[in-house]
Amino acid sequence: MSRSSRSMEWTPLLFSGGLAFFLFALFAVIPFGDTAMKVGTMIHQQGGELGAANLVTAVVLGYRGLDTLGELAILFAAATSAGLVLSNTRQRTRSIKNKGLGELFESAISLLMPLLLLVGVYIVLHGHLTPGGGFQGGVVIAVALFLPTLARGEMVINHHLIQWIEGGAGALFILIGVAALIQGAAFLQPLMAAGEVGRFLSAGTLPVLYLLVGLKVGAELAALLGHLVEDDEPGVQQ
C-alpha cells in the first residue's frame, strides 16, 4: 500500500509537468490577437441586426442562445447536486448554528440591501445596452438576498417562492424559444421588432430573456447560499 501511494505522488507531478510544457509550447506559437476571427468579423458586420447595443448580448442570447440555455442548466444541475449532498450530510452531522453578526452589521446590511437589489436589477435590465447582463446582475441580486441571512443568522428567504422563481424563470426562457417555434420560426429565434439601437425598449425579446436569466441565477445562488447556512431544511426534499 505504502509503495503504491508513494508512486501515486509522482505520477500527477510528472503528468502536470508534461501538460504544462505542452500547453506552454502550444500557446507560444499561437498568434494571439493578430487576425480577427472569421465569426468575429461576421458578428462585427451583422451583429447590429438584433438591435442590441451590447454586442456581447447579441452573441450570448442571439447567436448562441442554446449555449446560454445549456449554461443555465449547468448552474441548475450544480445547485441541485449541492442541495442533494448538503441534505445527505445533514442527516449525519448537525451544522453549527450561525449566531449572526451583531447589531452594527445588521443595520448596515438593511441599509445596503435595497441598494444592492437596485444595482442588480439595473445591471440585468440594461444587459442589452451596457456591459453586464443576467448572469452578472443575478449574482448581485443573490448577494443582496443573502445578506440578511448572513447578518441575522437565520433564513429569511421563502424557499417555496424561490423554487418557483427559479423553475419558472428557466421554464419561461424555454417557452419563449418554443413560442418562436410555434410561429414557424427556429427555436430561440429573437421575436418582436429590434427597435432603435440604444433605446431601453429595443432588441426584441433579448432583454426579456436576460431578465429571466437574472431571476434564475439570483434565485439559484440565493437558495444555494441558504442551504449552506440552514440547519434543517423546511422543504420536503428527502
Binding site: 440555455l69 423554487q163 418554443v178 414557424g184 427555436f187
Partner: peptide
Amino acid sequence: SNSLALVIALPLLAAFLLQPLAQ
C-alpha cells in the same frame, strides 16, 4: 424540422419545473 430542438428543450423544461411541481 425546427422542432428537433424540442428533443433537448423538453427534458430541460421538465427538469426546471420538477421541484416546484413536486412541492
